[in-house]
């Protein structure tokens, strides 16, 4: 066996499936100077993860879930949460009504 063939036996590994999403969260944090927990709220309601059941739920339900989660993990009350929508690649700041 030749050296170049031998070297090629080491195959490329796949990138982690959430690599781009993690990166967008980091960028979001930097751009909006917001805390991790506020960003994570967006992740957990499924906007970043693209969970179908949550994507298909009405906007008011998404908003409620974002605030419930952000309040829970921060042990406080948030007036605004920034979310990232994986389908449209848009950031949106949602306010508590």
């Amino acid at each position: 066996m030749k050296l170049s063939q031998l070297i090629k036996l080491s195959k490329d590994r796949e990138a982690p499936p959430d690599f781009a999403q993690k990166l967008m969260v980091r960028i979001l944090q930097q751009e909006h100077e917001i805390t991790t927990t506020q960003v994570v709220a967006g992740v957990q309601v499924g906007w970043i993860m693209g969970v179908a059941s949550i994507l298909s739920s009405p906007a008011s339900a998404k908003t409620k879930m974002a605030f419930t989660y952000a309040d829970h993990i921060n042990s406080g009350t948030h007036l605004e949460v920034v979310c990232y929508n994986a389908n449209t690649s848009e950031y949106s700041k949602i306010s508590r009504k």
Partner: peptide
């Protein structure tokens, strides 16, 4: 930017 990330994430990580 996302298109660039998706295209290059695997070669860059490897």
């Amino acid at each position: 930017f996302e298109t660039i990330v998706l295209k290059y994430q695997k070669p860059i990580i490897n």
